[in-house]
Design a protein around this nucleic acid. Structure first.
Length: 851
RNA sequence: GCCGGAGUGGCGGAAUGGCAGACGCAGUCGACUUAAAAUCGGCAGCCCGCAAGGGCGUGAGGGUUCGAGUCCCUCCUCCGGUACCA
C-alpha cells in the first residue's frame, strides 16, 4: 500500500485535461466581457473582422468550425498586435429551408429557426471564439428587417428599384419553385411531381445594371484574383455596335419595322446570312407567316421549358425554326431570312442577333445544320477562298476584310469602326456597350422573408407603405395547406388594407425579399443593432467601415459579394454612407465536405458533429486540427484521421511547459544533451530555433497559412522536447523559448495557452493577466542569422553533392569550393563544366557539362 | 456548355522557377512494461542493388529554361458558381 502510493507520488505529473480547462476559461472570459469591443475606443487602430454569418440550418457541423475558428485566430493575433478588434456574429435567419421544415414537420418557420439559432449559439461559444455577442443580428427580427423595407423604399425613391415582369418556374400545386426544387431533365416539381412551367409575374427589381461599370473597378480593395475575374466575367461588359435591320415586306406583312441587334463584330456585317430572334422576342408573333405559325408556336412553347444553362450549351445540337419572314441588311440592302432559336436569349442584348456563321461558332453550327450560306468576310492573306470547316474567329494583325464592298481590304478593327460610322449617318446603327449582368430580381413568392412594403390599389397602382407604418410585420399565422405556395396570398388579415393614397380598398404585396437583401448590408447593422430610428449609425459607420477583413466561402464569390458591393454604392448614393466598397480585404476559405466528398447535410447523413470531437479531445485540439489539415482556402472531404497527432502535439507542449525536467520512460537518451553539444551550444540552438520559428510563424499568421504555422510550432516543440530533462531545460534560453511557443500558439489554442500562462505567472508570483492581452513578441534578429549554410550542387540539373560554406561567401569563392568537392571531382571525371550557374543568392550551384 | 479553382507517397499535405515529399496520420523496428495501452527513439516515395550507388517520379501529352510541382499550349478528372439553396 505504502509502496504503491509513494510510487504514484513520484511519477505523477498532471496530465493535459482540456475538459477541466476549457469551460473554466470560457466562463472567465465571458464574465470579464473580454471580447465586448469598445467601439468608441480610438486609442488603438481599429480592425473590423467579419466572417460570413450563418444560415441556421440545423445541420450543425464541423464546416462551421472550419470557417470560424481560424477567423478567431486572426482576431486574437490582431489583438496581440495592438489593434481594437471587432468580430461580431449573427444569423441569416430568413430562407427556404425553414419553410420546407415547416411543411414537412408542421413546425412554424420561426420556431424552427429560433431553435436552431439557440443550438448554434451554444456551439459557437464552445469554440472559445471571441465573438462580440452583444452586437448580434438576427435577420428575421422585425428590428432588422424593417430596415430592409426602409432601404427598399429609399431605393424606390432614388429610381434604384422598379417593378417589371419576369418568368418564374411554376408548379400548379406548389407555386414558384427554386432551381433546386425542379428535378430531372423533364423538369418536375420535387414535391408533387407536376410538370414545371414558366409563368410571367410582375415582380420587384433592384437596378444593379446602373452600377455595371463601377462594379468592374476593383481599385482600392484587396480581393483574390479569381473572385475579381469571376465578377468581371459575370458583369460581362462587351463593346461593339447596335445595328438596326428592317423587316422586309412580304405577302403577310408590310415590313419596315426595326429589328435591333447588338454585335461585338460590326466588321462582319457583310457576312450576315440570316438573323435569329429569341423565341420570346416581342416581334415574333406579328412577323410569323401564317403557314409557319404552328411550328413557331410549338417551338416557343418548348423553349420556355428549357433552362438557360441548357439553352446556352455549346455542345447541344442547335434547334430553331424559320418564321417565314426576312430582314434587310442596312449596309447592303440584302434580304436575309429570320429564324427563332433558343440559343438567343431575350434578356441579353436586344434579344436578337445577326448571324455570321463564318465567324461565330454557334452561328456556324446553326448554319451547318440548316444548310444556310456561310460567307467569309475576314481572311488572312491568301486564304480568302479557303473552305471553312469551322468558324474563323481569329483576330490577327494581317487579316483583312473580304467580300465587304467598299470596306474590303481594311483591317477588321478599322472596317468595324467605318461600318458603324456609315450606319450612324443613316440612323441605322451606333457604337454600343452591353453587359451580361441583369438587374437583380428581389421578389420571392414565399412566406419566410421580408415583406415588400407595397400596397396595390386599383386606382393608384403600386403605392409605397408610408415610412411611419413600417415595419410591415410578417404575420405569424401560417396556413400551408401542405403545399409550398405562399400562404400570405391566403391571409385575409394581412392582405386587406386601405390605400395610403386614396383610402380606398387595397391589397398588400405578398412577395417577400430575396434573402440576399438581408446579407447585403448586415455588417453596418452590427455597429448599432438596436438603433431604433435608422438602419445605420452614420458616425459608427464612418469610423468602422469598410470592413478590414471578410472571411467566408468561395461559393459566394459572385452573388452575395456582388450584391453587397451594389448595396454599398446604392447606400452611398442615397446619402447614408461615404464609402463605395464594403470589404477591403477578402479571403475565401474552402469547404469541408462529408467523408463521401459531398456537401455536408442532414439529408445525406454525412454530417460530422463537432460536439463529439470536442468532448473527446477538447476545443483547442479541434481548432488546431482544422487549421492543420491543409491550406485554409482548400477545404476537402472530412476525415478525422490525424487529429490524434495534433492532440499529441498539445500534450508535448503541456509537458514542456509544466515539467521541463521530466523524462519519458523508454527514452534511451533521457537527460543527455545531443552528442557533441555542450550547454552553450544547446542554449544557442534553442534560442535560434525559437526566434526563427517566431519570424516564420508571424508571416504565416499574416498570410492565413495556418497549416504551415502549426507545422513550424510542432518543429519547435519537437526541438524543445529533445532538451527536456537535460541541463538546458529550465534555463534562460529554454524559458524564453517556452514563452514564445505559448504566445505563438495562443491565437490558435487559446484555452491551453491561457492555462499554462496563468501557471507561469503564479509560479513567478506575478499577478494574473491574460495571455491574450500580451503583445506579439519581436524577433531577435541577432540570433536568427546563420554562420554557415549548405549548398546543393547539381550536375546537369541533378543533385550530386552538398557543400557547407560560410554564410557570406562570394559567388566566385563558392564556385571554387564546389569544384574542389571530392564527390563533384569524381562525378566530373576530369571534364570541365561548360557553364557554372550560381542561383540567385548562392542557394544552389548547377554545373552544366555538355556531351 | 460557360466562368473560377484543384489534381504531389498508403492518407492529409510542404516546397519566392533552384535539394520534391517539411509537418502530421497510418505502417514498421527498437526502448519502457510481466504484458498490453500510453509514451520515447529509429526507419520509411517507387524500382534495381548485400552495399556503395543508380534509374524513375508531382493527373496525361507537348513546349520554354542551365534548371519546371511551379511558367506556356492541348487534353482528362474532381470541386464551386451559373442569377429563386444560402
Amino acid at each position: 500500500m505504502t509502496e504503491t502510493s509513494e510510487r504514484t507520488e513520484r511519477t505523477w505529473t498532471e496530465r493535459y485535461d482540456p475538459a477541466s480547462i476549457e469551460p473554466r476559461w470560457q466562463a472567465r472570459w465571458s464574465e470579464a466581457a473580454t471580447y465586448r469591443t469598445d467601439l468608441d475606443d480610438d486609442s488603438r487602430p481599429k480592425f473590423y473582422l467579419l466572417t460570413m454569418y450563418d444560415y441556421p440550418s440545423g445541420d450543425l457541423h464541423i464546416g462551421h468550425w472550419y470557417v470560424k475558428t481560424p477567423t478567431d485566430a486572426i482576431a486574437r493575433f490582431h489583438r496581440m498586435r495592438g489593434e481594437n478588434v471587432f468580430m461580431p456574429v449573427g444569423f441569416d435567419a430568413f430562407g427556404l429551408p425553414a419553410e420546407n421544415a415547416a411543411i414537412k414537420n408542421k413546425i412554424h418557420p420561426r420556431e424552427w429557426t429560433m431553435k436552431n439559432i439557440e443550438n448554434m449559439r451554444r456551439q459557437l461559444r464552445s469554440m472559445g471564439a471571441t465573438f462580440d455577442w452583444e452586437a448580434e443580428v438576427v435577420t428575421c427580427d422585425p428590428a432588422y428587417y424593417r430596415w430592409n423595407q426602409w432601404l427598399f423604399l429609399e431605393f424606390l425613391k432614388a429610381g434604384l428599384a422598379y417593378r417589371a415582369k419576369a418568368p418564374v418556374d411554376w408548379c400548379p400545386n406548389d407555386g414558384t419553385l427554386a432551381r433546386e426544387q425542379v428535378e430531372g431533365t423533364d423538369r418536375r416539381c420535387w414535391r408533387c411531381g407536376a410538370t414545371v412551367e414558366k409563368r410571367d409575374l410582375e415582380q420587384w427589381w433592384f437596378r444593379t445594371t446602373q452600377y455595371a461599370d463601377e462594379l468592374l473597378d476593383f481599385s482600392g480593395i484587396d480581393w483574390p484574383e479569381p473572385v475579381r475575374i469571376m465578377q468581371t466575367n459575370w458583369i460581362g461588359r462587351s463593346e461593339g455596335g447596335e445595328i438596326v435591320f428592317a423587316t422586309a415586306p412580304s405577302d403577310h406583312h408590310a415590313g419596315g419595322e426595326e429589328l435591333r441587334v447588338f454585335t461585338t463584330r460590326p466588321d462582319t456585317l457583310f457576312g450576315a446570312t440570316f438573323m435569329v430572334l429569341a423565341p420570346e422576342h416581342p416581334l415574333v408573333a406579328s412577323l410569323t407567316a401564317p403557314e409557319r405559325r404552328t411550328d413557331v408556336e410549338g417551338y416557343v412553347a418548348r423553349a420556355r421549358v428549357a433552362t438557360e444553362i441548357e439553352r446556352l450549351s455549346a455542345d447541344r445540337e442547335k434547334t430553331g425554326v424559320p418564321i417565314g419572314a426576312d430582314a434587310i441588311n442596312p449596309i447592303n440592302g440584302e434580304r436575309i431570312p429570320l429564324f427563332i432559336a433558343d440559343y438567343v436569349l431575350a434578356g441579353y442584348g436586344t434579344g436578337a442577333i445577326m448571324a455570321v456563321p463564318a465567324h461565330d461558332e454557334r452561328d456556324f453550327a446553326f448554319a451547318t445544320q440548316f444548310g444556310l450560306p456561310i460567307r467569309r468576310v475576314v481572311a488572312a492573306p491568301g486564304t480568302e477562298h479557303a473552305p471553312l470547316d469551322a468558324a474563323f474567329i481569329s483576330h490577327a494583325a494581317d487579316e483583312r476584310l473580304v467580300n465587304s464592298g467598299p470596306y474590303s481590304g481594311m483591317s477588321a478593327d478599322e472596317g468595324g469602326r467605318a461600318i458603324v460610322v456609315a450606319l450612324a449617318e443613316r440612323n441605322a446603327g451606333k457604337a454600343a456597350v452591353t453587359y451580361r449582368i441583369r438587374d437583380w430580381l428581389i421578389s420571392r413568392q414565399r412566406y419566410w422573408g421580408t415583406p415588400i412594403p407595397i400596397i396595390h390599389c386599383d386606382r393608384c397602382g403600386a403605392v409605397p407603405v408610408p415610412e411611419d407604418q413600417l415595419p410591415v410585420l410578417l404575420p405569424d399565422t401560417v396556413d400551408y395547406q401542405g403545399s409550398g405556395d405562399n400562404p400570405l396570398t391566403r391571409d385575409e388579415a394581412f392582405l386587406r388594407v386601405k390605400c395610403p393614397n386614396c383610402d380606398g380598398p387595397a391589397r398588400r404585396e405578398t412577395d417577400t425579399m430575396d434573402t440576399f437583401v438581408d446579407s447585403s448590408w448586415y455588417w453596418f447593422r452590427y455597429l448599432s443593432p438596436e438603433k431604433p430610428d435608422g438602419p445605420i449609425d452614420g458616425a459608427m459607420a464612418a469610423r468602422w467601415t469598410p470592413v478590414d477583413q471578410y472571411t467566408g466561402g468561395a461559393e459566394h464569390a459572385v452573388m452575395h459579394l456582388l450584391y453587397s458591393r451594389f448595396f454599398t454604392k446604392a447606400m452611398r448614393d442615397i446619402g447614408l454612407i461615404r464609402e463605395s466598397e464594403p470589404f477591403k480585404r477578402l479571403f475565401n476559405q474552402g469547404q469541408i465536405l462529408g467523408a463521401d466528398g459531398e456537401r455536408m447535410s442532414k439529408s445525406r447523413g454525412n454530417v460530422q458533429d463537432p460536439d463529439e470531437l470536442v468532448a473527446r479531445y477538447g476545443a483547442d485540439t479541434v481548432r488546431l486540427f482544422l487549421m492543420f489539415m491543409g491550406p485554409w482556402d482548400q477545404g476537402g472531404p472530412w476525415s478525422p484521421s490525424g487529429i490524434g497527432g495534433v492532440y499529441r502535439f498539445l500534450n508535448r507542449v503541456w509537458a514542456i511547459a509544466t515539467d521541463p525536467r521530466g523524462t519519458d520512460q523508454g527514452d534511451q537518451e533521457a537527460g543527455q544533451l545531443p552528442a557533441g553539444q555542450d550547454l552553450d551550444a544547446a542554449e544557442a540552438t534553442i534560442r535560434t530555433a525559437a526566434h526563427r520559428t517566431l519570424r516564420d510563424v508571424t508571416i504565416d499568421y499574416e498570410g492565413f497559412r495556418f497549416n504551415t504555422m502549426i507545422a513550424k510550432l510542432m518543429e519547435l516543440s519537437n526541438a524543445l522536447y529533445r532538451y527536456r530533462g537535460t541541463s538546458a531545460a529550465g534555463g534562460g534560453a529554454w524559458e524564453e523559448a517556452v514563452r514564445l511557443l505559448l504566445l505563438m500558439l495562443a491565437p490558435a489554442a487559446p484555452h491551453m495557452t491561457e492555462e499554462l500562462w496563468s501557471r507561469r505567472l503564479s509560479a513567478a508570483t506575478v499577478k494574473w493577466t491574460s495571455i491574450h492581452s500580451e503583445r506579439w513578441p519581436d524577433v531577435d534578429a541577432a540570433v536568427v542569422v546563420e554562420a554557415t549554410r549548405e549548398v546543393p550542387v547539381q550536375i546537369n540539373g541533378k543533385v550530386r553533392d552538398k557543400v557547407v560554406v560560410p554564410a557570406g561567401v562570394s559567388d566566385a569563392d563558392l564556385e571554387q569550393l564546389v569544384l574542389a568537392a571530392p564527390k563533384i571531382q569524381a562525378a566530373l571525371a576530369g571534364r570541365t563544366p561548360d557553364r557554372v550557374v550560381v542561383a540567385a543568392g548562392g542557394r544552389l550551384v548547377n554545373l552544366v557539362v555538355r556531351g
